[in-house]
Design a protein around this nucleic acid. Structure first.
Lengths: 221, 221
DNA sequence: CCAAAAGTGTTATGACTACACCCATGA
DNA sequence: TCATGGGTGTAGTCATAACACTTTTGG
């Protein structure tokens, strides 16, 4: 088993993030095989010879969530010799951001279970996935401060309070409402729609949307 | 030749930087084999089954420069299908920073030549090495602004003007001498030595050294 | 004494922080 | 009319940017 592969093999693992009920969550699958039986792990798979590593990551993401065209970025490559007891596997890790709206999880027979976990309270993880997810969370925080990618965690139309709440959840930090609005509006990333929120028992908020829904470098917070 | 490998193979390429004579330089090797005969490339090699990817990068660096214990950081993994005409090779790229002091290059028979090039005026490069080096330069600029790793490009003792010059060369930007000194000294990264420069036809400068010569996150410039 | 780089302070401007009250709606 | 979150401005502080002359040395 130790020498299953004569050369290192390339896999890809995907840390999938969403924000749901005020919590940053990540999608994990529960394993069946020893020595990681019942341990959880980020979804992953081998890179095939006829697909690029990016394509492999997108395929794995699509297999687990059914989603195409979501934000997907390479994170880091994990290449320690003993990271996988089944053989010599180098993993090119990615992270994905999705807006959780009526997303159905595909539990295949390959795994015991699939579920969302609070990214800050993880269960026992297989392989070096503890390290991978920690790095993904750190990278996500950093990206949120230096780019506009938060758009991929929000619905098309949203209020400034919803936007602020997502920054606060991920960065574990509170912002002053007035200062936050001043800052975020000065960046011209958002356009104000001529619509208001409906159906809640208080003053309805103005809705906004992103001017660009493609990744851009911006000093945000 | 196209199907030399049945699975993707893992290689590592190292972009080695130094600053010499006021220029940011990178070490390239000149290839012998078709279709890249006489093209230049960043040094690289396959990752062996009994070494980690980090170890492979350090080994390749050491084989080309004879140096151990230099600053070496993973950059990005390049995994396009057709990036290497010899077969399916995924490359985990690294970049290294060295202080060029009496460094002897090992030209092996494997290559036509080994030489330093201005990182902003590169010759025809093999594979996707144009892209790899461009990404390495961008990453280096970013790192210089957010960490103390510039220590690895300087000798143990240096003047503030030498330090400023390295920032200016890499960031392609001039700084005001007074503001630069105020800023850099306020970070407490440097200690003033009780020595002065000797042997030049002008007022001798005070020498400084770094307090820490290990990578640290700092907002520098 | 001349050439060359070292060293040094002040002022103006822009960015960030802290902070409290009135508004619009549904129940 | 009450509860709930929406929406708004100002003043103080801090970091950054602009700017020019004197000092020390070797030749």
């Amino acid at each position: 088993m130790q020498k299953k592969y004569q050369f290192p093999v390339i896999a890809s693992d995907i840390v999938i993030f969403t924000v749901d009920k005020g919590i940053l969550k990540t999608l994990l699958i529960q394993m069946k095989k020893q020595p990681f039986e019942s341990f959880w792990a980020a979804p992953g798979g081998l890179v095939k010879v006829n697909e690029s590593v990016d394509q492999a990551a997108a395929r794995i993401l699509s297999e687990k969530t059914g989603l195409e065209k979501v934000y997907l970025e390479q994170l880091y490559t994990f290449g320690e010799i003993d990271r996988d007891p089944f053989g010599r596997v180098v993993s090119v890790a990615y992270f994905a951001l999705i807006s959780k709206e009526g997303l159905s999880l595909k539990t295949t027979s390959e795994y015991k279970d699939v579920s969302w976990f609070d990214a800050k309270k993880l269960p026992k993880l297989a392989y070096d996935h503890q390290e991978i997810i920690a790095k993904a969370v750190a990278c996500l925080k950093n990206k949120l401060e230096h780019s506009n990618i938060i758009y991929s965690l929000l619905p098309k139309e949203f209020t400034l309070s919803e936007l602020q709440k997502i920054y606060e959840i991920i960065l574990s930090k509170k912002f002053d409402k007035r200062n936050f609005r001043k800052k975020i509006l000065s960046l011209h990333m958002l356009k104000k729609l001529s619509k208001k929120q409906t159906g809640q028992a208080n003053r309805p908020a103005m809705l906004y949307s992103f001017v660009h829904t493609s990744p851009q470098q911006v000093k945000v917070i």
